[in-house]
Design a protein around this nucleic acid. Structure first.
Lengths: 232, 232
DNA sequence: CAGAGTTTGTGTCAATCGGACATTAATCGC
DNA sequence: GCGATTAATGTCCGATTGACACAAACTCTG
């Protein structure tokens, strides 16, 4: 069945799990315990199991890494990386997934066999194993684009959040500051983006902010384009 | 090396090659000569070869099917389809690619071993083999979206084309009619979208139209959004 | 050759949207 | 109470867009 003409490959999954922590866009990394790239940070991942659905495998990996219900968070397929020399161990094709999670209050699964850690994306300068730098670049660009055209930003937020929280997500992911007034107007005028609650949250200083839940809309029409706004 | 835990898969490539022919969005299909799905139309494709790069394999398949220089046309990765039961022959993961080609004057590679034919997308109602209907749906949606945010529409056109040709591409792919005056203004005011030539083309009837080449810009900012325009 | 028919190219106008910015409201610390 | 700080609402104006008028250039027909 498997003739010489057909490449024999193993199929891996790699997850770029993004969040906004401490005012920065961060990605979940694991430290490699084996060669190659021993000791280097890498994106968490694993191999596809026998008879396992591709998307289900990604959900499983996400749950294993974040100890969160993978079905509830945002998880989308990013791309496939299949350069012949991308893994020195042999022909391994990797399907990369992009996951967006809120700032997790739980300790980041550090008790696992592998050491997991959140790293600021800006602090990673080509330091990841394999071709994971390229995967991360693609993941960040996808997330930036998603913020323009979908309501994905709410996936970065806790179940209940303020407009300021949402604006911070945009500012951190895009790396530019936005006008709070215009941002509020844009979000609140888009029906289905956020849903008002009757609660408020008292910050350490300043006027209390109204709290919102995510709405049922997923696509933003019109989009919120990252124009030539004031760079932070 | 390949433990029981790791699924053994074969990696296939499927191409959704789209064009605009005879005023309709069409896709290149091949008629399957073997079981399963013998006699049913399917997207052209093949298996990844040993040591072959993924994108290079897609370029090769495209050239085999259209006899055109794959490097010159638009070819992008679409998605991966990996449901366990998507192929009755066993575990086959498929990487789908979207290709956009102009209306080919050459006979559509009909002399090949497999019979290739252009089929209008609208005429295909769940008639493709495997999960190719879903792949085609995704490909069409991707193309529609690309027309909004990139200059991809020029890939549907011959090297030299009129604004009317370009508008026809939008109308056919989106399935809605556009105002010719506003469309011209939008295209011509976007620097780098099209490049003027000093030639004109005489249609069968009506005023001659100026001919343009594709410009060097790839992203459209601002985009041309398919709004609630008049449906054709 | 004149006029109808058709398509291209230029222009107008009003409604809407987006960016820049002012002002008021609510809370905390002193 | 008062200043500092952040939230929420509002104003203004230029840019963009959708709807539509009209002139220009060509072919076909009578």
């Amino acid at each position: 069945m498997t003739s010489r003409d057909h490449a024999v490959v193993r199929l891996a999954l790699d997850l770029a799990i993004l969040t906004v922590r401490e005012g920065a866009l961060q990605v979940l990394t694991v430290t490699r315990g084996n060669e190659p790239f021993r000791g280097r940070p890498a994106l968490p991942g694993g191999f596809l199991r026998d008879g396992e659905d591709l998307h289900a495998a990604a959900v499983r990996e996400l749950r294993e890494e974040t100890a969160l219900d993978g079905g509830a968070m945002h998880l989308e397929q990013l791309s496939v990386y299949g350069a012949p020399d991308r893994d020195p161990r042999g022909r391994i094709i990797s399907v990369a997934y992009l996951a967006i999670v809120p700032d997790l209050p739980a300790p980041t699964a550090g008790s696992d066999a592998v050491a997991a850690a959140w790293l600021p994306v800006a602090a990673i300068r080509g330091g990841l194993a394999f071709d994971h730098d390229r995967i991360l670049d693609d993941a960040v660009e996808r997330a930036r684009s998603r913020l323009e055209f979908t309501t994905l930003a709410t996936a970065f937020c806790a179940p209940v959040f303020t407009i300021g929280d949402l604006r911070t997500v945009y500012e951190v992911v895009w790396g530019q500051s936005l006008d709070p007034r215009n941002f509020s107007r844009k979000v609140l005028s888009t029906v289905g983006f956020v849903e008002a609650t009757d609660e408020k949250r008292n910050p350490l200083v300043g006027r209390p902010a109204a709290l919102y839940r995510r709405g049922d809309r997923t696509v933003l029409n019109p989009p919120i384009l990252r124009g030539a706004a004031t760079v932070a």
